[in-house]
Amino acid sequence: MLTTSEKEQIEKEIRQVPVKKAACIEALKIVQDHRRWVSDEGIQDVADILEMSTEEVDSIATFYNLIFRQPVGRHIILLCDSISCYVMGYKELHQQIVQLLGIQYGQTTLDGRFTLLPNPCLGTCDHAPALMVDHDLYRDLRKEELENILAKYT
C-alpha cells in the first residue's frame, strides 16, 4: 500500500502529465525514495495508482538500471567504470572496496550497510577516478582514501 506521502507525491506528478501512465517513472522514483528499492508490492502499488498492469510497470522498472528491483543496502556505492576512470585506474579502487567490504558488484554487505554497483561515466572525467556514495560525489580518488570515506556512512 502506498503511504499517504507517497500517494500525495505521485498524485502531484500525475497532474503534470497529459496521461497518468506518463508519471510511471516518477512514481517509481518516489516509491524507491521512500523504500530504498521497489519490491513486487511496490510495482503493484504504482500499477494501481496509475491504472496500469503490473507487467506494464515492471517492463519500465526493469529497463532502467537505477530502479532497484532487489533489496539494496542503506548506502549505495556507484563506482564509475567508464573510460577516463579506467585509464586513471578505477580497478584499484574496485579491488580496495572488495577488500574492505567483502562484496562484489551487485552485492550487499551482510550488515546491510552498502551495496556496490558499477556505474557508467559519472561525468567528472577530468577528476577521474570517481565514485558516488548516495548523493555524494568523490573525485580524484586514491584508494588510500576509501576507508575514511566509507567510514562516514553507517
Binding site: 501512465k21 506518463a22 519500465i60 537505477l66 530502479i67
Partner: peptide, 27 residues
C-alpha cells in the same frame, strides 16, 4: 518548465529515446 531527472541508461540521451523516457516509457 519542469526538471526531470532520469533513472539511468545512456540511451536516454538519444533524443527520441529521451522523449519516450519523458513519456514514462522504456527509453
Amino acid at each position: 518548465m519542469h526538471l526531470h531527472t532520469g533513472v539511468g541508461r545512456y540511451m536516454c540521451g538519444e533524443e527520441t529515446a529521451l522523449l519516450n523516457s519523458l513519456e514514462g516509457k522504456r527509453a
